[in-house]
Amino acid sequence: MKMTEIRWHGRGGHGTVTAGILLAEAAVQSGLVARTFPNFGPFRRGNPVLVFTRVSSGPIRERGPIKAPDVVVVMDKALLINGGALDGLKAESVLIINTTQELVELSRQVAGLLSERKLKVVAVDATGIAIEELGAPFASTTILGAVIRATGIVDLEAISAAVKARLPVADWDRNLRAIQRAHYTARQN
């Protein structure tokens, strides 16, 4: 597997940093090489947060921000326009968006923002699922289900192992349910 670069656009409080860590943990436990790190602005809830995750089967020699991502995960659709989420996208990049919006409408909107360029767009209502399963809008662990479905970087089993390695026992079942629901309800154009 060649290196996959994932850029997450979230806000303080979404759990975006944790999502990057869980994905990297799942990759390491699957025998891959992974690195993940955050880039905050001011340390407060609601502020935009960027997370950069790299996964590869071989050595990784980069530590800088990801400028040309293979995958972009957008936790809050407002960041699509104002958060630089569309910066540096490549023709084959995958855009995963946390939204209640219909996929067709979302794809049209994204195509408009990218001047008609076709892109693989995935829509998932991670916040809705998180509210139901976790009782709180912590959509970042939930959206992992959609991320691994769209990219195939690791499987559900590896994510499950990462959740068990990183989160308290009391949080395992509900997070795994949320991740599975996002996995099976993510819609892709």
Binding site: V33, A34, R35
Partner: peptide, 10 residues
Amino acid sequence: GWTVSLHHEG
């Protein structure tokens, strides 16, 4: 700092 201190890796 950050580049290593907050950079998760194996």
